[in-house]
Write a protein that binds this DNA or RNA. Structure first.
Length: 224
DNA sequence: GACCAGGCACATC
DNA sequence: GATGTGCATGGT
């Protein structure tokens, strides 16, 4: 089986097992951007609480956040953890959005993928995963998102080795799949879903819908 | 009480 | 370029 065939098979099995994931959770593209920063190394449930704090006070907008002090933001996003760091990162992102695009996510999304990615990654606090999440799920650009779950699932199925890096993994998906926003978004969401549930400990891994996918694929030899 | 969760920047070598 | 460290809450 080629890598391309394995990825296709993986997608088909995940889709059959779990169905549409309706990602990214969030009512607006701006909320997606905020969530992308707040979920860094953090459980999504905690992020929901933090976003809820902003939303219930009517502060979940570029204009409102732009006008707030970092300290105020920090106190509201506490449940998301790393709140001092994330308050700065969120402000950096919002200030950038206001400066570059007048706080208009639609205008931001009109920019070209390569150019926009470069600009996003220049914002302090926006790394590759956060940037790609914003590009894919907020700006609707066909760019693949790699996260710890992606890494784990691929490692489990011997599509990468332990030393594989972000860009290498991203490139693997993008060179083997058609550049479609819906496909990329759904695939990534499904990888998170399966990774969360089955991919951590060997006993669960063996119940995974992907476990029998590849005749030449590695069975797990240890916990990740 | 330990471990984990949809990273990132920065220091140091 | 590779490796180590700080950041923090809330659920299991």
């Amino acid at each position: 089986m080629t890598t391309r065939e394995k990825l296709k098979r993986m997608y088909d099995l995940l889709e059959a097992a779990f169905g549409p994931q309706h990602w990214w959770p969030g009512e607006t593209a701006f909320e997606v951007m905020v969530g992308a920063v707040l979920t860094q190394n953090t459980n999504w449930k905690n992020v929901e609480k933090a976003i809820g704090n902003l939303k219930s006070r009517g502060l979940l907008s570029p204009e409102k956040l732009h006008a707030m002090r970092v300290g105020e933001v920090a106190s509201l996003i506490r449940p998301a953890g790393y709140y001092n760091v994330k308050a700065k990162r969120l402000k950096n992102l919002v200030d950038w959005l206001v400066d570059e695009f007048g706080g208009d996510v639609e205008r931001m999304s009109a920019a070209g993928l390569a150019e926009l990615r470069e600009k996003l990654l220049a914002v302090r606090g926006v790394g590759r995963e956060t940037g790609d999440s914003i590009l894919l799920y907020a700006a609707r650009k066909p760019t693949f998102v790699v996260d710890t779950y992606t890494y784990r699932v691929l490692l489990r199925h011997a599509l990468i080795d332990e030393s594989a890096e972000y860009d290498e993994i991203k490139e693997m998906f993008e060179s083997d799949l058609p550049a479609e926003v819906e496909l990329y978004g759904e695939f990534h969401a499904l990888l998170v879903r399966v990774g969360k549930t089955y991919c951590r400990k060997i006993p669960r891994c063996e119940e995974c819908p992907l476990d029998v996918t590849f005749e030449d694929g590695a069975r797990p030899v240890r916990d990740i």
